[in-house]
Amino acid sequence: MSTVERVRPAAEDARTEGSASGAAPEPAPVSAGASGTEPGAAVSAGRAPGAVRSWLRLFGSEAGLTFRRPRNIAMLAVLAVIPVVIGVVMRLFAEPISAEAQAEGGGGIFTQITGNGLFLTFAALSVLVQLLLPVAVAVVAGDAVAGEAGGGTLRYLLTAPAGRTRLLAVKYGNAVVFGLAAVSLIAVSALVTGLVLFPAGPITLLSGTTIPFAEGLLRIGLVVLYVSAGMAALAAVALALSTLTEVAIGAIAATVVTVIVVQVIGVIPQLSWLQPYLLTHWWNGFDGVLRDPIATAEMGRGLLVFAAYTAISGSVAWARFTGKDITS
């Protein structure tokens, strides 16, 4: 015990539990993991901060890093500005555009913006959900692990020790929150723009039924949640790719390219049988909210697809990240 006594007294506070254990080589509460960082909660539960608080603290740190990062703020700003641009353009040039759109047979949603400001939210989301919103989510989620690995900060987080499973979970939660924030921001920006530039009032649904304004707001809330769930599935895919590389831009680019390729596959008629299995196919499923009755079955299927993508990608990310050699 002489060695232990030489340890400086400062170490006696709160964390001497292990050093005093020298008398017996007590086996730690060990999991089967080779780098077994999992049982963090069990061990740290008895410590001062408590498991939940320490999770929240790491999550807060992660979110602070994401939402203070200039690049991410710029992306959110772009996402928030686009509904304003659509609104202003519709306000200034509404007739020609809607006529043109009608000629193509796809202008339905846009023609309704001029009649009701609330529709700007749906129109903006249906435009942004194709590429820009996924790109923003891919940047944050793709950067999550690869960015830290590339910057070398990952090794310090893991020796802190953040715990691999814990860090990955927090990173994923953060990407989901970012997606929710981005979707909400688009919705709010579009809502404000729509109400300023266009008349408000009862909303005509795609089915031709009219619902009161307040219920329209409620349905916008449902749309935000559904689209966020779709983005959460994408975030899981991006996170899995992020664990495969140490180059953040590689993970981000891979995710974006995947999204584009899948969207191309989705419009090839010969591959139409694949559509129900494609993630991107379901992102637009939020239009089910605009039907009467709400297309719960279709949207439920969409959510199941999101859940399946999240589960598979998430478990791949976990398997890869917890078994990975950190050599950066």
Partner: peptide, 21 residues
């Protein structure tokens, strides 16, 4: 070979999830 066995167990999780889906 502790690594290889650990890794196999670990990758069993995504395989199981995929099989489930």
């Amino acid at each position: 070979q502790p690594t290889r066995r650990g890794r196999a167990v670990r990758w069993g999780v995504p395989i199981a999830v995929t099989a489930l889906v």
